[in-house]
Simulated scan of single mutants.
Amino acid sequence: MMPRPSASAALPRRRVSAFTGLDVCETAGLRLAPGAARVLFEQDRWVLSAPIDAHRMVLDRELTWEFTDILNPRWRTVTKEILLALLVPQHGAVLECAHAIRSVRSPRTCFRFLQQLTDWFNWLTSQAVTRLGDVTQHLCERYLEERHWSMPVPGEPRRRLEPKTMAEVVRAMQLPLLYGELLSGDGYAEGFAPWDGKPASTVMGLKLGGPNRVPPVPDLVLQPLLATCLYLVNVVGPHVADLLGEVRAEADSGQALPRVTKEHVPAVRHVLTPTELPPRSGADSASVIWTRGSRLSPT
């Protein structure tokens, strides 16, 4: 359970953000492509310009963070402070937060939190709430119930979203609590913790470590696949390794190697023999693949 601050605990707000004037990418250790524009903390639009070490699945839109989508300007600063704290958990100001997340979060994860915080803060604005200190548990529960339903689709009934999806919503709502000592613009009231600081998985009744939702591969597919893999590793693999060793030895000998063109590639003699794999379940005949029956050698 996340510890809940006592009502007597003092959480003085910083007059100036601890991140004022910092280069976001430099502070977070994100290596950008040469010539990329700097991203300063005060800017309301952070364009991370494709970090060199970014995962290949990261989309361009996930690296452009638009804080002007948050209607309340005060909460834009709050969101920036939280997101940068997630990127740099070892920063001195973040270490002062007793309940802060201590592991580094990726830009992609931070982008999801940006979306969740934007929705949460804008919903509060729609309810005429202008200070996070006025947030109550009743408001949290009302928002969670509204978010619990899928977007309306013409001709289809709305459905309740999965607990795993909603747990992320709860985590985002609890972030201002975790970084209360860091926030300069605004924050929850002293002593207030959404759901009394219970983990998001507990709030949503999420059971962790359940059975695998992906069905097992049937033997009809799995057994021939495993047999083929074993053949490639145990029979074909050693020949390929020997051939690779010869190529490396020739390269190390200093011999002038021909240009890699179709005309200069030496012919390779393949001796092929049919090899039967174990019969598949329910099959009348065995699977047959053609494999190299002898070591590859130049002609």
Rank of each mutant, 00 (worst) to 15 (best):
residue 163 P to I: 07
residue 190 E to C: 14
residue 103 S to G: 13
residue 213 R to L: 12
residue 149 W to R: 03
residue 112 R to K: 06
residue 271 V to K: 01
residue 162 E to N: 11
residue 194 P to K: 00
residue 290 W to P: 01
residue 165 T to C: 12
residue 89 P to V: 03
residue 250 E to D: 12
residue 194 P to S: 00
residue 116 Q to C: 13
residue 85 A to M: 08
residue 230 L to H: 11
residue 295 R to F: 07
residue 111 F to Q: 13
residue 77 T to A: 10
residue 202 T to F: 01
residue 191 G to V: 07
residue 196 D to K: 11
residue 94 V to I: 06
residue 231 Y to S: 06
residue 287 S to D: 15
residue 135 V to C: 10
residue 232 L to K: 09
residue 145 E to M: 12
residue 36 A to N: 00
residue 63 L to I: 04
residue 4 R to W: 10
residue 90 Q to C: 09
residue 233 V to I: 12
residue 72 N to H: 05
residue 214 V to C: 13
residue 274 P to K: 10
residue 50 A to N: 04
residue 15 R to I: 07
residue 284 D to G: 11
residue 31 R to L: 14
residue 31 R to E: 12
residue 208 L to N: 14
residue 224 P to S: 05
residue 279 P to M: 07
residue 78 V to R: 03
residue 157 P to W: 03
residue 136 T to R: 11
residue 234 N to I: 05
residue 65 W to T: 08
residue 294 S to D: 10
residue 206 L to Y: 15
residue 15 R to Y: 05
residue 4 R to C: 12
residue 259 R to S: 15
residue 210 G to Q: 04
residue 252 D to V: 03
residue 101 I to M: 10
residue 232 L to A: 12
residue 131 R to G: 04
residue 167 A to M: 07
residue 102 R to L: 07
residue 134 D to C: 06
residue 209 G to H: 15
residue 200 A to W: 10
residue 195 W to S: 03
residue 91 H to E: 02
residue 126 S to C: 10
residue 6 S to E: 14
